[in-house]
Design a protein around this nucleic acid. Structure first.
Lengths: 233, 233
DNA sequence: CAGTGGTCTAGACCACAGG
DNA sequence: CTGTGGTCTAGACCACTGG
């Protein structure tokens, strides 16, 4: 319990991580409270708090008022994915970005889409599909429905020069979203657009975007064969 | 510029988010510095800092010393995935968890695996495959290689009662990892294990786990048809 | 009820990087 | 060089919750 004299919260965090990693503080164990650690480390309690908060965010400890801080039994590995604009994604890989609008029209959606977008029965929605290219090869197919009540300005856009993906991000604010990843066998039209055989396993995602409780847009992005979504833990 | 008297950093964060969302602070714009905002909000600078740090972590603003704080032009949507233990994943969906070890043996790996695990040419590695079941139906296939230099105790385990997935998490510390998600057509053996037709599109992930610079384990998890990985933005 | 983490404050110094 | 965010401190009060 000697004072060590750590200078900043990162040092404290590293020391805490070391103790967890070395099993000096084994999984499930209650660790000393902030005041004790501050004394031991020779710093202010706020500094210890900052460090422990960071470790807690990483999922390695669980903190509860009164109950204290425990080393997590099963550190929940959290992978943070940056969902970038597709163009950015491609350019970061050092490839040339290309874009091609396949279809764009106002439609009266079926009840499934209507339910998802939370539109009225007599609302039209903008439905479009487009292809994103990397080095002139198909990269991803974008199929999108835009709720014109949430994004009325979209009606004035042709989406020929700029993809809906980028236009929406730049022009329509959103507050939250849901995203789901899955695998799907290429349909005949998928295969045609992406230049692969029907039945090929394709990585795809569905994303639903909200502005408050209004649905802005629903999009499905189906990637060309071989796509991998990477993340770090 | 009246004092508003926000009480805590969450209030400050909400106000900042509101201004960004309403375009009062449009994308790309420089926002007032912490001292100004603290005055305006009638709180300490540390409180403003706490709030802005949270907003920055969410990807909505970019902060640089001296350059100040700007509203991000393209808010990088960040989805945080909790990669839970499979059993936990299944139980959280209210289903009964089952587990069945298919194979477990010491092997001299081929050069590809050896390179990935960073083992020596004459090191054996533990190779195993297992099936995870939900309500007695195949849920996911686990194919794993364990570096015995990083996890020597694994050699004493049979992995009949407890999956390697859980055993490793509970017994072998790790510091970081890489994860990749992709889609794959079911091979004949995949199809047999998971009870589907060969060729079916399956969602799969590869994960590589490190303890410092030592590789602990490489695992591929292939999910039964219909699996969706969900996240919120 | 009492102990723990959560937060705020006012002030200070520092590190970085723009101009 | 100078303005900005980054951080630390000592002390204080609060909110939650376990026992």
């Amino acid at each position: 319990m000697n004072k060590v004299g750590f200078r900043n919260w990162r040092d404290v965090r590293e020391e805490v991580l070391r103790r967890i990693h070395s099993r000096e503080w084994p999984p499930g164990q209650l660790i000393p409270n902030e005041t004790h650690l501050a004394e031991e480390f020779g710093c202010a309690r706020a500094t210890v708090n900052r460090a422990l908060r960071a470790v807690a965010e990483a999922g390695l400890i669980d903190r509860k008022r009164k109950a204290g801080t425990r080393v997590a039994k099963q550190p929940t590995a959290k992978a943070t994915l940056k969902i970038a604009v597709i163009r950015q994604d491609i350019e970061e890989r050092g490839m040339k970005y290309g874009y091609s609008l396949l279809n764009c029209e106002l439609r009266r959606p079926d009840s499934t889409i209507r339910a998802v977008l939370r539109t009225h029965a007599d609302d039209d929605v903008l439905q479009l599909s487009a292809l994103h290219l990397a080095d002139d090869q198909p990269y991803a197919l974008e199929e999108r429905w835009i709720n014109l009540r949430s994004a009325p300005d979209a009606n004035a856009e042709t989406f020929v020069e700029i993809s809906a993906n980028e236009w929406l991000l730049a022009n329509i604010p959103f507050t939250s979203g849901e995203i789901g990843f899955f695998a799907t066998n290429a349909s005949r039209t998928d295969a045609e657009s992406l230049g692969c055989e029907p039945g090929t396993a394709l990585f795809a995602l569905d994303r639903l975007t909200f502005d408050g409780d209004k649905v802005v847009t629903k999009v499905r992005i189906t990637f060309a064969p071989g796509y991998r979504l990477r993340a770090e833990i």
